[in-house]
Simulated assay, not measured.
Amino acid sequence: MTPQSLTLGYMPGGPPAKWARIWAQRHPDVPLHLHPVAAADAADAVRGGVVDLSLLRLPADTTGLAVIPLYEETTVVVVPKDHVVTAADEVTAADLDDEPTLIPLDDVVGWPDAPGVAVEYRPETTGAAIELVATGMGVLIVPQSLARLHHRRDLTHRPIVDAPTCAVGLAFPEGQPSVLVEEFIGIVRGRRPGSSRGTPPPPKRTAREKTLAKQAARAAAGKIPRRPAKPKRGRR
Rank of each mutant, 00 (worst) to 15 (best):
G222L: 06
R227N: 04
A163Y: 08
P12T: 00
P80G: 12
S54H: 02
R153W: 03
T92Q: 10
D162L: 06
L34C: 06
G198R: 14
A128Y: 10
K204S: 05
L58Q: 10
G127F: 10
M1T: 12
A134N: 00
G194Y: 11
A87L: 06
Q176Y: 12
V168C: 00
P104Y: 06
E124W: 15
A20S: 11
R192E: 07
P202V: 05
V179I: 07
V109Q: 07
A128Q: 14
V142R: 02
V142C: 13
D97C: 14
Y71S: 02
T2P: 09
L53E: 11
R57A: 08
R148C: 00
A219D: 10
K18D: 11
L32A: 04
P15C: 05
P3F: 13
L53S: 15
K204E: 11
L8Y: 11
F172N: 08
A171K: 02
V67N: 11
D41P: 14
T156F: 01
M137D: 14
A134K: 00
T92R: 09
V85R: 11
A171Q: 07
W19P: 14
T2G: 05
A129R: 13
K210R: 07
G14Y: 02
A20P: 14
R122P: 15
R192N: 08
A93K: 01
A216R: 09
E182M: 07
R153N: 05
V79I: 04
D44S: 04
T199Y: 15
G169A: 10
I130N: 02
R122D: 14
P31Q: 03
P164M: 11
P112F: 03
L58M: 12
T75M: 05
D29W: 07
K204A: 10
V108D: 04
D41V: 09
V109S: 10
R148A: 04
